[in-house]
Design a binder for these strands. Structure first.
Length: 152
DNA sequence: GCCAACGTTGGC
DNA sequence: GCCAACGTTGGC
């Protein structure tokens, strides 16, 4: 099972939005970056995903969700009144993909960005790299364990 | 709100 | 294919 991390602004979609209705999957859509999209495509049902809260008061990893549906064409790219509308995409060859994710757990305490930056062994994670804006990234098993060890 | 870093666009 | 201009991201 592969592991991942996705960034989100909690005002858009937070771990609490997942926790509110733990039995219901939420579409992860609106990704409009090719590298991030390519990782989305690699996600498989059952994969675990860290939810990282960005651009907010408490920046860091807040919880874990699970992929319940692998990549499918993001419907919002075709909705003309959506902020995620992409006039250059067409239904025959959809440019953007979405996946569905469902609540798994909220971490007992948030793992802050400062904390993540201080960990030896996370240097290769794009999240902590200067200037990196990648919003969907793979997390190795070692990185995953190291991060989770911060709250155990 | 600022601004550095980055990705995308489009003229050439 | 180059690269300047532009828009966006995201920590501070």
């Amino acid at each position: 099972m592969a592991k991942w991390l996705v960034k989100t602004e909690p005002s858009e979609c937070s771990i609490d939005d997942f926790a509110r209705d733990p039995g219901t999957a939420i579409p992860w859509d609106g990704v409009r970056n090719y590298q991030a999209r390519n990782f989305l495509k690699e996600m498989a049902e059952g994969d675990e995903v860290f939810i990282y809260h960005s651009s907010c008061k408490h920046i860091g990893i807040a919880g874990i969700v699970r992929v319940t549906r692998s990549a499918y064409p993001d419907p919002k790219q075709f909705e003309t009144n959506s902020p995620y509308h992409d006039p250059k995409s067409n239904p025959d060859t959809p440019r953007w993909q979405a996946v569905d994710m469902q609540f798994e757990e909220k971490l007992p305490t948030l793992i802050s960005l400062d904390q993540l930056k201080s960990l030896t062994g996370l240097e290769e994670l794009p999240l902590v790299r200067k200037g990196s804006r990648l919003s969907v990234m793979p997390v190795s098993d070692d990185q995953w364990r190291l991060i989770l060890a911060q709250v155990e």
